[in-house]
Design a protein around this nucleic acid. Sequence first.
DNA 1: CGGTTACCGGATCAACGATCCAGTACTCGA
DNA 2: TCGAGTACTGGATCGTTGATCCGGTAACCG
Lengths: 249, 249
Amino acid sequence: MEASEAGRGTGGSGTAGQVWLRTPARAGRAAPPLTRERIVEEAVALLDAEGADRLTMRRLAERLGTGSTTLYWHVKTKDDVLDLALDAIFAEVEIPPEGGQGWRAGITALINGWRAVLLRHPWSAALLSRPMLGPNVLARSEFLYATLLEAGVTGPGLTAAAYGLSNYVIGSGLMQATWPTGAEREVRRAAREYLHANRERYPVLAAHGPLVADDDWETGFALGLTWILDGIEAGIARADERGPMSAGR
Amino acid sequence: MEASEAGRGTGGSGTAGQVWLRTPARAGRAAPPLTRERIVEEAVALLDAEGADRLTMRRLAERLGTGSTTLYWHVKTKDDVLDLALDAIFAEVEIPPEGGQGWRAGITALINGWRAVLLRHPWSAALLSRPMLGPNVLARSEFLYATLLEAGVTGPGLTAAAYGLSNYVIGSGLMQATWPTGAEREVRRAAREYLHANRERYPVLAAHGPLVADDDWETGFALGLTWILDGIEAGIARADERGPMSAGR
DNA sequence: CGGTTACCGGATCAACGATCCAGTACTCGA
DNA sequence: TCGAGTACTGGATCGTTGATCCGGTAACCG
């Protein structure tokens, strides 16, 4: 609030010849000047705190101590804010060092970090349905492709491997972030009761239901990941025995 | 338009004693009476035709020849419409017959059908971030769990297998449905050009880029699916050799 | 000092989801 | 046959949203 007050100045400038009464120089402002980075940063904070549907340009502007209109100088649409916020959180995914302990370790680390980010910012799950072309996403995709390529994955298997891994993380993150936790835990309980009540129609689900504990997510995800990695590895082995050093046909 | 006209009746009912001038019996209406099913059906059609963000209660009501208010008698919120529409399209996924050609064939058929639906209704990708508890979704999950269970997948592997498969389909569908096709193909081309322009930062992506042709999606998806199925099968084999017929510890 | 650029925000617009409330048609029991 | 109850409809309206118009102000450059 004081930021907004300080930025507004003393208004009519009629009797305001006194420097002391006027707005201090821009550098002296309480809040740093508005930049695209600051907007995105605050948008992520707001999304983390209140979720995707509570993000409006007005509320975001209020948190930044400016008017909502101002945001549109730095950003074209609200969708831009969402795209930027989505890419911004991918910066948290650490890219493993180049010469690591083998390609499986590197890829596993990347995928796990990716997944951790998706779960740390659950709102991102709902945003994954837009093309991700930001620099942070691309950098991590680049690492993924490079690591696979160096491991010996080539041709159509490369795309399949990269997409398989990506799709698996995204699906998992989406599924788990979707699932009500915390305060909405009653929804979860209600779902379990519903399944139990209709256990004649869904006998297996009611018995071995998908409403797993939090730990099961971890182990299940890790298990599925090893399956995919095993499949990729088997593909490399087959390619190698067909022709270990011979390129092409 | 005529449906709306016919449904409105002759108004004041003062001079309208004549049966011929009055509204024909409800059964004689041009449009069938409004039901939840009809609303959902039309919502799916609207979503298919114009996408998720073009679906509003007003437009939906207009297509149904009623006022927007009326919809709220059959449905509590707009989110209800989306949830119902999402479950409705899952009815298109054919559930393979019980005694099929082995569990792999059955699961493959289900997963492929699932994927086809996601691609046929691209708007559904953006909606997957809400809990899916509708009857159609549950019935297909039931089949998945039952088939896996019958194949010999037990314990934590069951949840892992079911979620692994689901997450993989969802991620794939999301990714592919997201990717601009058809009219937005220029976006795709622009992305490729962008990658090429920044090929120093993303050398591998620019060369073996993820901007695949349509066919590659299919083969890549099938390849990844076999990997997961292989992993599940290997798990079954390991469990069998530990104790082919011994239950429990 | 005049003008150009970068940045800010009050007022405003059209569209949205949702609700209020006044209706209208049909049903069922007496 | 009537009259009360119920199922359903929709015009008007409310608060909120994303976005734009347009008039400002501060810094900088020649």
